[in-house]
């Protein structure tokens, strides 16, 4: 019988990661789209690093930095009770860093492409920057936000390297579907590996198809 735990855990990880990432990325993308500070290229580079670096690099350093025997990891553990290795929280943290560019990039380019007149008009009408961002700018870049959400979600589902390095394969905590597939292949249980892989394939296909349909305007045309 197939254990559905890893699939449920993968979905949970993807949902939590995407929501937190959205909250973090909107201000970051807004800042990047508007700032003229000299540090901007550095921040942009750092945000993009997970695209280039193998996930194992990230996993390796997370493992070392957040180890409870390390000064920083120990402090986190004792003072805040947060343990970022071998735990679900750790996977969320790792996934957020790993998927950061997938959320920030679309939102940032969406914001950069908006005409300045939108922001200016709102300012003349006496609206604050935050109100402008929420009520005007974000409403005009819905496709970019959707792309960011979906890519981060899908990328987190497909994550393997970071989870393998810092997860510890604990059932219900860190044993996500990608790890379960690796395990089952190794144990020569190809049947179970096929089931997990099939589910992931279907989910990924549907999600991406949805994005292309929405962003391509197919749905609107279809409903009209």
């Amino acid at each position: 019988m197939i254990d559905w735990g890893p699939l449920v855990l993968t979905l949970k990880l993807a949902v939590v990661t995407t929501i937190l990432l959205l909250i973090v990325s909107v201000p970051m993308a807004y800042w990047l789209a508007n700032t003229k500070k000299r540090i901007k290229p550095i921040i942009e580079t750092l945000v993009s690093m997970p695209l280039v670096l193998p996930p194992t690099v990230l996993g390796f350093y997370l493992l070392i930095v957040f180890s409870p025997s390390n000064a920083f990891g120990g402090w986190l553990d004792e003072q805040i009770g947060l343990r970022l290795i071998f735990s679900f929280e750790g996977l969320v943290f790792g996934s957020m860093i790993y998927s950061l560019p997938f959320m920030v990039h679309p939102i940032q380019s969406g914001l950069s492409n908006l005409p300045n007149s939108l922001q200016e008009a709102s300012a003349i009408l006496g609206k604050s920057k935050i109100t402008t961002l929420i009520k005007v700018l974000l409403r005009n870049i819905k496709p970019s936000i959707l792309t960011g959400i979906v890519l981060s979600f899908a990328h987190t589902i497909g994550e393997f390297g970071v989870v393998l390095m810092i997860g510890g394969n604990m059932p219900g905590q860190t044993k996500v579907a990608s790890i379960a597939i690796y395990d089952e292949v190794e144990a020569l249980n190809y049947g179970a590996a096929h089931v997990y892989s099939g589910v992931l394939f279907t989910v990924a296909f549907c999600i991406l198809l949805l994005v292309y349909l929405v962003n391509g305007g197919f749905l609107k045309r279809f409903w009209k």
Binding site: L63, I64, S67, P68, S69, N70, I85, F86, L164, I166, G168, N169, M170, I179, Y182, D183, E186
Partner: peptide, 21 residues
Amino acid sequence: KLVYGESISQTNQFITSKSAD
């Protein structure tokens, strides 16, 4: 408390990096 390495090498990595006690 149990954490599982995918092989004995990864288990060693957990031990030597002190991630596991």
